[in-house]
Design a protein around this nucleic acid. Structure first.
Lengths: 233, 233
DNA sequence: CAGTGGTCTAGACCACGGT
DNA sequence: CCGTGGTCTAGACCACTGG
């Protein structure tokens, strides 16, 4: 610590973490106040503050005014999955990406969709089916519904060239979404497109996207057999 | 903004976000420097800095010394899943949680496990099978391997009362992990424990945990049929 | 080399929430 | 009430990197 350079908030973080891992501060322990720690580490309170703040953002500490900072008892771990566009995912595995638009229909929203996305009944939506290939092997089947009201330009877009996901990401870059993963059995259509046997277990990702309380799109991606979604934390 | 209170980094974040969403700063735009923004917003540079730093942590901005801050072109979205212990997950759905230890064996690590966890060959490991129930309905089947070297106390632990996950979380609270989700077909054993038909698609989560470069545990959780793992972002 | 973000400091005031 | 974290400020120096 006293090696000539000033103590950085990184140093503080690391030392606090060490004390937790080494049971110097077991779970539940109340840490010294920021002022005391600042004195001990020979740095400004703001430096300690940033260190502790980041640790609490990582769910390692609990901070409350007046009662102080304590080591979390049961840290809820968070797995962070990077949801990138399919093209990038394929290309990052050094494979050749290919995309095909299978179907495109502009229709009034079916009832289940209106209910799910809180659309006015008879709202026009765009229904798309797409395939994504990795080295010409089926990689992902995409079944997507788009609320035309929120992205009218989609009707004119050339979706033969660029996938709807990429198009939407350019158009509506920052939106709210709910995502879910599940397992399902391949039905006839999925088996056809993904070259599977009917009933084969497939990994699915379903995502609903909202922009300022209005639904933009609902998509279900079905992956090729054996696909794994991986993350570190 | 000029309502008497000082401008907070929250205000800055929100305003910057608004300008991005309203296409005042389209994707790729280089933002004014922190100093200019601080002047514009009437606050200190540190305030702007914190706002922009947090936005870049959210993958909305790209920041580089010298070249400045720009709006990310293709923001990689991150889905953050809270991985809590099963008991909590069940209890949060207002159901009654029950846990059962099915099998417990202390054996030398099989070769595939040694390879996967980088264990010395013949390292002793603990192999556990557990069931978790929600309202007495099968909820999750847990198949776990524990490296005894890293957590010797596990041998003495009473795993009839508390699940190994909870026990480990208390003992080794802060560790590195790799997690992956996938779909599989239920084999005979899974079908038995989870009351499924053989071949039914099931959702699986596999997790490897490391503490300071040493493997702690490898676990595969298989969920009841129809399970969905959900998150917002 | 010079411009931009990255960080530290010392001091100040505020806001929440136990006692 | 009053202790603790939450935040802002003004100024300073540093570190990286593009030209």
């Amino acid at each position: 610590m006293g090696d000539g350079t000033r103590t950085s908030f990184h140093d503080v973080k690391q030392e606090v973490l060490r004390r937790i891992q080494d049971r110097i501060w077991p779970q539940g322990t109340v840490l010294p106040t920021e002022i005391k720690l600042a004195k001990e580490f020979g740095c400004a309170r703001a430096t300690v503050n940033r260190a502790l703040r980041e640790l609490s953002e990582q769910d390692i500490l609990d901070r409350k005014r007046k009662s102080g900072t304590r080591v979390k008892i049961m840290p809820a771990k968070h797995a962070k999955f990077e949801i990138s566009i399919v093209r990038r995912e394929v290309e990052e595995s050094n494979a050749v990406y290919r995309y095909a638009l299978v179907a495109k229909n502009q229709i009034p929203a079916p009832d289940w969709l209106s209910a799910r996305l809180k659309l006015p009944s008879e709202q026009m939506v765009l229904h798309l089916l797409c395939m994504h290939y990795s080295n010409n092997i089926p990689f992902q089947f995409e079944d997507r519904w788009i609320n035309i009201e929120t992205v009218p330009d989609i009707v004119e877009a050339n979706l033969e060239a660029i996938g709807p996901n990429e198009w939407l990401l350019q158009e509506i870059p920052f939106s709210e979404a709910e995502i879910s993963f599940s397992a399902a059995a391949a039905d006839h259509k999925l088996a056809d497109f993904l070259s599977l046997t009917i009933g084969a277990p497939v990994f699915q990702m379903e995502r609903t996207t909202w922009l300022r309380d209005k639904a933009v799109t609902l998509v279900r991606m079905t992956y090729h057999q054996g696909y794994k979604m991986t993350a570190r934390y």
